[in-house]
Design a binder for these strands. Structure first.
Lengths: 222, 222
DNA sequence: GAAGTAATGTCAATTATTTGACAGGTAATT
DNA sequence: AATTACCTGTCAAATAATTGACATTACTTC
């Protein structure tokens, strides 16, 4: 009786979703600058996208603006934050306490945005007990229980690719529904588990491609 | 006389370029597994994309395959590597010797792929001289000369957003033509400077969105 | 409070990307 | 040597994303 037609939810394209964090970032900056309102035109100039795209994107989620006025910066910032799920607390575990993993945990900014590390795991006994931002590194064997007992909803995988696929499978068995993956391999998980890849070397290769292309097009010598 | 029609170069879409590193990765894995040849059909099943897309993508760069045979794994791996510019040495500097910066320098895998850090800079005097993977941290003031004298072609920016835009401008003035940007802000550089953003928190927000969407669609309670 | 101006939300047109289909070659098999 | 099965490169169709245009509404000014 409480359940309505389930097909109400319009699927938003990943292209749009991929732009939301950028909008959020720009609105945050505007807010910090003390800007109260902004039109799609002004924002488009700052962000170097078309005004039409901004209006189109925002309209996927409802009418946030007002004709003749534009968008209220603070309100829009909050609303996009909600859309992105930044108003709910996310409890994370780190798998892999290497350089990158430590950097992520120490990355205080995530905290402001409601992403909280709750535990750190590694399979290197030399690290057990070591404190990283007040969290002791724990052995992998304890991961599963910890995830279950602490309402963890995101696992961050920062281990070499060799072990990553297996660890992801374990995590899925522990009930994890979201993985932020820094290992250089694609994970194999069921459909109901969300994976976001942060393949840093892919990103670097793209840069390398664009350097080469520019040099070729402009006859730059190596 | 040596200059031909400059319009020969077909512009490849960023959508295609974005997929190249993934092809490269899968081909490397196949090579390691000892697989000699592969058809677009088989590869498509592994990668979970359509075979048509693979053939279309590869064909942007030339005919690498053979009818009735498929693609030679090793050959294709090498060729895509060349397209991505992995056959040329890239000399990099790190700006910002914080946790993330150190993690990137220590990230040995980049080396195999011809991306070499040559110098590290920070504006924190407490770090000057500190060795990170045998490189001493140098003061920012020396950055420009170093870049010029050591044929640096990529600058990696891993500092808080407050200083990033200004540092990017400095780097451009020093002649840098490519920036790998980890700061949470968009840089403002001339058209001939390539920027690749690695906005980690954007990535995390996307994950957060997808968690929320899944939960909504499936009526999962928080 | 009326007139003018600004700026959204939305529809339609355009452009880009992805998918499907198949002709024509290549290799394997008999 | 002929036949069959395989698989690419490419073209055309289908789908998706972006842009432009404008009717409509809200704000601002006089």
């Amino acid at each position: 009786m409480e359940k309505k037609e389930t097909k109400e939810i319009k699927e938003i394209s990943q292209a749009v979703i991929g732009r939301l964090p950028r909008y959020f970032r720009y609105l945050g900056d505007l807010k910090d600058e003390g800007v109260e309102r902004i039109s799609s035109q002004e924002l488009s100039e700052r962000m170097k996208v078309t005004a039409s795209q901004i209006r189109q994107d925002l309209n996927n989620f409802g009418g946030f603006g007002q004709q003749g006025y534009g968008y209220n910066v603070e309100y829009l910032h909050v609303e996009i934050g909600k859309i992105l799920g930044l108003d709910t607390e996310h409890r994370m575990v780190l798998i892999g306490a290497g350089n990158l993993g430590q950097a992520l945990v120490n990355y205080t900014n995530f905290e402001k945005r409601s992403f909280l590390f709750k535990g750190i795991f590694d399979n290197n006994p030399a690290l057990y007990g070591k404190l990283i931002r007040n969290f002791p590194v724990m052995p992998m064997e304890e991961m599963c229980d910890f995830v279950r007992e602490n309402q963890i909803d995101i696992a961050v995988i920062a281990i070499p690719k060799e072990g990553a696929v297996k660890v992801a499978e374990q995590l899925v068995n522990c009930g994890i529904k979201a993985i932020w993956n820094f290992s250089h391999v694609d994970l194999n998980v069921p459909e109901d588990v969300q994976v976001e890849n942060a393949h840093l070397s892919d990103s670097l290769m793209k840069l390398s491609y664009n350097i080469g292309r520019y040099n070729k097009e402009n006859g730059v010598k190596q």
